[in-house]
Write a protein that binds this DNA or RNA. Structure first.
Length: 431
RNA sequence: GGAGAAGUGGCCGAGCGGUCGAAGGCGGUUGACUCGAAAUCAACUGAGCGGCUUGCCUGCUCCGUGAGUUCGAAUCUCACCUUCUCCGCCA
């Protein structure tokens, strides 16, 4: 959600942003918001005046009662009664205008960074940089499920019976590799100065609507029946939500956290659940990183964050590239976003394994996260910090890259050196 | 799950129908004293939203959250949330 003041003072910027995102159908929202905003302020001024009068008269009644001047007090009561009746409808109007405005504002996307390439869909995303040599072995690389099955590492049939499509049992070495990747990712980020955290896996509705847009909420979140609780889609939700309604001292910034959690996603409106695979599923686990920082530092943190993921994959010798999300593919809350993609020797192309986003102050504004400026800061008033989030690694999807890139001709899979301590020293997984 | 107690500003803590956005303290900022620091003294010091004469002006809202009673609610009533203590249960 952007500041109403931007719409009030610079509506053309907001319209231009909508055009850049190919959301022309939302252009009318700008004028509607301007209109609602001015009507809201007008009715607020009116109501405030009435409230001021009511407060004054009520105070007088108190004084009169004290002096025993009952008749005059009764006259005051009558006036306040009348004001209250008048206020009733005015306050109802105020409330409905505010709700309507908020509703409109929720659908006006965040102002994207000037560096974001313009494009309609993910087909227009722009490759930024490649890291490592994408290699294709001289034997055929099977589908990842086949690799896993040969290692007796996956049971999708049982999962379909217990839970349906989009779930999995990981077994044996594959399951161990899964845990090893997460443990290694955790320690990798701790070594880079991030604080490890295991957050709640369920959060309240108020937090959910603060960290994501309504469409995302509809399409992603599982709700717990009969309670105001949702299963998190990523630990980013709990980790940013952690700061809801708080004022942070500036010297506690930047907040740099690396968190682990299972992630639950309905994947409605995405590309659907994959029948045979662990690429897009309802449940996975993820090591995440989040940063809360001063607005002027967020661009720098953004680069640092996705470089962490690149370095992580490179430490496992998996070739990756970074892909800049174009304007039309960028979620409404985001200012800028880069995907990290890993090389698939089977498909001979890169596929998404992580996503790094700068949300600007959108989440902070929705959640009421503010910063109290420190001594040397020129700012005098509390301000909204910027929030960023990025994937370190999300197995089992990440396992696809790991298995494909470390597969040998005989079907065995080499365990990359950094993972061996987490695999009891094991150097390979045998068929 | 059951029984009690409690939630007030950055923190501690008083207030328990009107003069309360809230005593007092701590912390913070500024000034005085000092070569400087400490100590001491003085002033200032919550947030959000609006208005215009943009002023260290002015109005509204906020004492866990939401409803209600009342001319008037931090203060009374109800529901919910959270915390603490005891019991039960459990990893």
């Amino acid at each position: 959600m952007i500041d109403v003041k931007i719409i009030r003072t610079n509506p053309e910027l907001v319209r231009e942003n909508l055009r850049k995102k190919f959301q022309e159908q939302r252009l009318p929202l700008v004028d509607e918001a301007i209109d609602l905003d001015s009507r809201l302020r007008e009715s607020k001024t009116k109501a405030d005046t009435l409230r001021a009068r009511r407060n004054a008269v009520s105070r007088e009644i108190g004084a009169l009662m004290g002096k025993g001047r009952k008749d005059e007090a009764e006259a005051g009561k009558a006036e306040v009664g009348e004001i209250s009746r008048e206020l009733e409808s005015l306050e109802a109007l105020e409330e409905s205008l505010a709700a309507e405005l908020r509703e409109k504002m929720m659908f006006i996307p965040n102002i994207i960074d000037p560096s974001v390439p313009i494009g309609r869909s993910d087909a227009d995303n722009v490759e930024v940089e490649r890291f490592g040599e994408p290699a294709v072995p001289d034997f055929e690389v099977p589908y990842h499920i086949d690799i896993m099955e040969r290692l007796k590492g996956i049971d999708l049939d049982s999962a379909r019976k217990t839970s349906g499509a989009g779930f999995y049992y990981l077994c044996g070495d594959v399951a161990r590799l899964h845990s090893a990747v997460l443990s290694y990712a955790r320690d990798f980020m701790i070594d880079r100065g991030f604080t490890y955290c295991v957050p709640p896996f369920m959060i309240r509705g108020g937090v959910v609507s603060g960290v994501m847009s309504f469409t995302e909420m509809e399409n992603m979140m599982y709700k717990i029946e009969g309670e105001d609780l949702y299963l998190i889609g990523t630990s980013e939700h709990s980790m940013i939500g952690k700061f809801i309604d708080t004022i942070l001292d500036e010297d506690t910034l930047p907040q740099t956290w690396t968190s682990y959690s299972p992630c639950f996603r309905k994947e409605v409106g995405a590309h659907g659940i994959e029948e045979r695979g662990v690429y897009r599923i309802h449940q996975f686990e993820k090591q995440e990183m989040i940063v809360v920082c001063r607005p002027e530092d967020s661009a720098e943190w953004f680069v640092k964050l996705y470089r962490n993921t690149v370095d992580f994959f490179r430490s496992l010798d998996i070739p990756v590239r970074t892909l800049e999300c174009c304007s039309g593919d960028l979620a409404d809350l985001k200012v800028k976003s880069v995907d990290v993609e890993a090389w698939s020797p089977r498909q001979k192309k890169y596929f998404e394994v992580g996503s790094c986003s700068n949300l600007g102050d959108a989440q902070a504004r929705r959640l009421g996260i503010r910063v109290r400026p420190g001594g040397d800061d020129k700012r005098k008033e509390n301000y909204f910090p910027h929030t960023l989030n990025n994937t370190v690694t999300a197995p089992p999807r990440m396992l696809i890259a790991l298995l494909e890139n470390n597969l040998r001709a005989d079907g065995s899979v080499a365990v990359p050196v950094p993972l061996r301590p987490y695999m009891g020293g094991k150097e390979q997984c045998n068929v």
